[in-house]
């Protein structure tokens, strides 16, 4: 008798501790997309309240919040990623849309043609060489170094580049995202230190290093910075796609 009471008590306690009624909701794209928007907006509020402190940029701080929630709710990242394909789909048309500010800023871009071409060619080479060299000094394996080479290249190009030169495309994708997160977090400090206020230079340098996320960040400054960053992202991606395989075939 007393045993069955204990049993039923344990059972209801179990149900309280491991409630399954909401599992269907938690696994649904609806909930996983809601997480993205909620974390981003929460991060946005914190970011604005604290006077747009660069290390708390919503893409960065929002990602921390998402990661904490996923770990807390025991949701595999893969499920979250798949549910958010719906959100990431819009990266395509948004990228096409960059043609508009690019066209609108054409007069400024023409005037800065020389600084643009020199900065992007030296910057693309510098980004790849510095990453590989630092990794080498820190004792990285060859595969790691090859996956690091396209770190400043926009993700879709970086993945196919890494594959081609013998790196790991999944590692390259992570390295590319990490580069962008570091880039948008520290760029405002570095540019302030170098006394760079011109939106053209601000945006372009951010685009050369931090590709897509850098471009999103540059548009938060103004359209000119955004247009220069878009241009930098395209030129760096295109140039690296040609240069990196050549450099690797000469060295390896």
């Amino acid at each position: 008798m007393s045993n069955s009471i204990v049993d039923s008590l344990t059972r209801s306690a179990d149900q309280l501790m491991n409630p399954v009624w909401y599992q269907g909701l938690v696994d649904s794209p609806l909930f996983l997309l809601t997480i993205s928007l909620a974390c981003f907006q929460l991060a946005n509020v914190v970011y604005r309240r604290l006077g747009t402190f660069p290390l708390l940029h919503p893409t960065v701080f929002g990602a921390v919040l998402v990661a904490l929630l996923l770990l807390q709710l025991d949701i595999p990242y893969q499920d979250y990623y798949q549910a958010n394909e719906l959100l990431m789909f819009w990266l395509g048309p948004a990228t096409v849309a960059l043609a508009v500010p690019l066209y609108q800023q054409l007069h400024l871009i023409r005037r800065m043609a020389l600084p643009i071409l020199v900065t992007v060619s030296s910057g693309a080479i510098f980004a790849a060489v510095s990453a590989v060299l630092i990794a080498y000094l820190l004792g990285a394996s060859e595969v790691t170094m090859l996956s690091l080479a396209p770190k400043s290249v926009t993700t879709p190009i970086a993945i196919s580049l890494a594959d081609e030169i013998g790196g790991l495309s999944t590692l390259a994708a992570g390295v590319v995202a990490l580069t962008a997160v570091v880039g948008i977090s520290v760029a405002p400090f570095i540019f302030k230190w170098l006394n760079i206020k011109e939106p053209e230079i601000w945006g372009f340098c951010l685009g050369v290093t931090a590709h897509g996320m850098g471009t999103a960040r540059a548009f938060e400054m103004n359209t000119t910075a955004g247009a220069f960053s878009s241009l930098a992202m395209c030129l760096t991606g295109g140039l690296s796609a040609v240069l990196i395989p050549i450099a690797v075939s000469m060295l390896v």
Binding site: C39, L91, A216, E220
Partner: peptide, 16 residues
Amino acid sequence: IPLLAIMFLPAAAGLF
């Protein structure tokens, strides 16, 4: 274009 920042959120979260 102003929504680009949130479109990158899932990729950034992947870092963890």
